[in-house]
């Protein structure tokens, strides 16, 4: 158990564990995301009555956390291991703790605590309640029961488990600097990521053309709106992600004032709310195909039908 400690081993172990517990192993998204939550495998799929159990790694970009690859704990892009369980199982905490056991973390030898941490993502009109899970004082997982996404009440409720892969790996390997991590046998994290960390930081803080970014934001917003008008939820959502990432870049470069910030968030949010509504309706029209209980699916199709307008 102590041998297989590379970051890659952690990922594989978690893949195996969650596969055994009925998750489909999805992949990182191919549009920039700030967190595993932003991947449509979570944002969109947590909406509506369809069962959904998925796990994937998400390289998550936080331009504001870029530190030129010099800070031992801070990254422009880190890796989240994301698990979504809908509906949240009754034994979800035990499942999670078992997953830690498979990573070689015996709770009797550690101090594991669930400390309140409520999650909110204003750009996508989402919030949930839950905890950050502490392992000997270190936050290793974000554990959230989704209550609302895209302004829509989640029913059933999904449980989201977001493991911080770098942190867990650093703990397991006893490493103090993220760049000293063993990523794969014989290859360090630094060898793979130090250069992009430096370059992305330099780009964000020194090189990025903020006026160009503002124009792109406007263009992505327009294009998302066009896709929404054509009732194409997935292309629309991709442009919403583009908006979100562009906003994060602008925010990191310090080009946005307090008041303008609220307005940018509001613009992304407006689009996200429309996309959420459209997603739910499009799944309904398809008859909620992922529901195993077809009779229940039929009931949901009726229950969620848009109310006919009164003449």
């Amino acid at each position: 158990m102590t041998k297989a400690n590379s970051l890659q081993d952690l990922t594989l172990t978690l893949h195996r564990f969650w596969t055994e517990h009925g998750c489909l192993i999805a992949n990182p998204y191919d549009v920039e995301t700030g967190a595993g939550t932003m991947n449509p495998m979570t944002t969109l799929r947590t909406l509506g009555p369809e069962e959904w159990n998925a796990a994937y790694v998400e390289p998550s970009r936080r331009p504001v956390d870029g530190r030129y690859g010099e800070n031992p704990n801070r990254l422009y892009q880190h890796h989240q291991y994301q698990v979504i369980l809908k509906p949240s199982p009754d034994d979800v905490q035990a499942l999670y703790l078992n997953s830690l056991q498979t990573l070689g973390i015996n709770p009797l030898d550690h101090d594991i605590r669930f400390v309140e941490d409520n999650w909110e993502a204003p750009t996508i009109g989402a919030w949930g309640l839950g905890w950050e899970v502490w392992l000997d004082g270190m936050e290793v997982t974000q554990f959230t029961y989704f209550q609302q996404v895209g302004g829509i009440e989640c029913h059933p409720v999904s449980a989201e488990l977001t493991y911080g892969l770098e942190r867990l790996a650093m703990y397991r390997q006893g490493v103090e600097n993220v760049f000293d991590l063993e990523f794969a046998p014989g290859v360090s994290y630094g060898a793979v990521f130090q250069q992009p960390e430096f370059e992305h930081s330099k780009y964000t803080f020194e090189v990025a053309d903020t006026e160009q970014l503002v124009r792109w934001f406007n263009d992505y917003e327009t294009e998302a709106g066009r896709a929404l008008d054509a009732e194409l939820v997935f292309p629309a959502y991709d442009y919403i992600l583009k908006c979100s990432h562009t906003f994060n870049q602008l925010d990191a470069s310090g080009a946005i004032s307090v008041s303008a910030r609220a307005s940018y968030i509001g613009r992304v949010r407006t689009l996200a709310l429309q996309a959420a509504k459209l997603f739910l309706e499009s799944r309904r029209r398809l008859g909620f195909p992922l529901m195993k209980d077809r009779a229940a699916a039929a009931r949901w199709v009726d229950a969620l039908a848009p109310k006919a307008k009164m003449p």
Partner: peptide, 27 residues
Amino acid sequence: TVRNGDERSLTTVQQGNERVLRARLSD
């Protein structure tokens, strides 16, 4: 710090907490 548990592996818990604080303070 106050651990939610007994005295078993207290050194591990102590070292883990020291590591977290060290990371925060190095930052």
